[in-house]
């Protein structure tokens, strides 16, 4: 089975069927071992979608299947949550124990993993996020990025198939953000987990294989970063940014300068601009006035 998540016509409202829909007839399929970024402004339903993926919330209408399991099947609740690991925004509010290794063991204790296996998995999880040397530290003395890595390790210890992350970098400084992103990408490569990353940072979305843009409980754009960030106008209209390089291309094209639509990283941008400056790219002289 290559699809790990299948969301069919999902609608959700917090106050039952009469209330306004936070998610409105949403369809989404996610391939195993893909890296999907979810974008959208606050209140567009991203977090609600995430919580529907591991049965913290259950659909008001439609169906959610994860690893082939219907999330409304109560008897398999722990199967779902173990497979769909979830990391939240504030690292302080998801660390339970007062020592790092004991916190990572928390989920394993809940799942009734035997002791020897547990010790092994705690060490593996710590190594996977590069926090082995902090095994016996108190979480409140760690930096934001380190805390968030501990939180990720606490999830990874469950050996999930999918890592759902709800703005994991929003409260971190640039260094912490880089640490977390590097960790997530490594987990995807080395452990084959599927990653769903909800974020406001376009530079993080660019690193994904696929970008899903939500607005008003619906998916309005879905595709590779190159495809999604071509739609600068649409993204602006739903209050989202694009990477600076894509924004610049968009503006230059308004002057009829035939630069490529979607340039997302620094290297490509330098290449395109140097070609432009070498007169290799077509533009109408005098079409612009500054």
């Amino acid at each position: 089975m290559s699809e790990i998540i299948s969301v069919e016509n999902l609608s959700f409202s917090y106050g039952g069927q009469k209330d306004t829909l936070v998610l409105d007839g949403l369809d989404l399929k996610i391939e195993q071992n893909s890296f999907v970024a979810v974008l959208g402004h606050n209140g567009c339903g991203k977090s609600t979608l995430a919580k529907n993926l591991n049965a913290i919330l259950l659909p008001t209408g439609g169906k959610v299947y994860v690893c082939g399991i219907d999330t409304t099947d109560e008897s398999r609740l722990f199967d779902i949550r173990r497979r769909m690991g979830m990391v939240f925004q504030n690292p302080d509010n998801q660390i339970i124990a007062t020592v790092v290794d004991e916190d990572i063991a928390f989920a394993l204790e809940n799942l009734g993993v035997p002791h020897d296996e547990m010790v092994k998995r705690v060490d593996e999880a710590l190594a996977a996020v590069g926090m082995s040397e902090y095994k016996h530290h108190a979480p409140h003395r760690l930096s934001g990025g380190q805390k968030q890595r501990v939180a990720i390790a606490g999830i990874i210890a469950m050996k999930p198939q999918c890592l759902i992350m709800d703005e994991p970098t929003a409260m971190l400084d640039p260094r912490g953000r880089k640490e977390v992103m590097a960790t997530v990408k490594r987990l995807k490569e080395e452990q084959g987990v599927t990653v769903i990353l909800i974020t406001h940072y376009m530079d993080e979305a660019v690193q994904a294989d696929r970008v899903v843009v939500m607005d008003d409980g619906k998916i309005i754009l879905d595709g590779t970063p190159e495809y999604v960030f071509q739609n600068v106008g649409l993204l602006h209209s739903v209050a989202l940014d694009v990477p600076q390089s894509a924004e610049l291309m968009y503006r230059l094209r308004k002057y009829d300068i035939k630069v490529p639509i979607s340039v997302l990283n620094e290297g490509d941008c330098v290449k395109v601009l140097s070609e432009l400056l070498e007169n290799k790219i077509d533009y109408k002289d005098g079409a612009f006035d500054i």
Partner: peptide, 11 residues
Amino acid sequence: ILSCLKGGGAR
């Protein structure tokens, strides 16, 4: 970029 292109641009 626009002012460069206007000025002939190239190296």
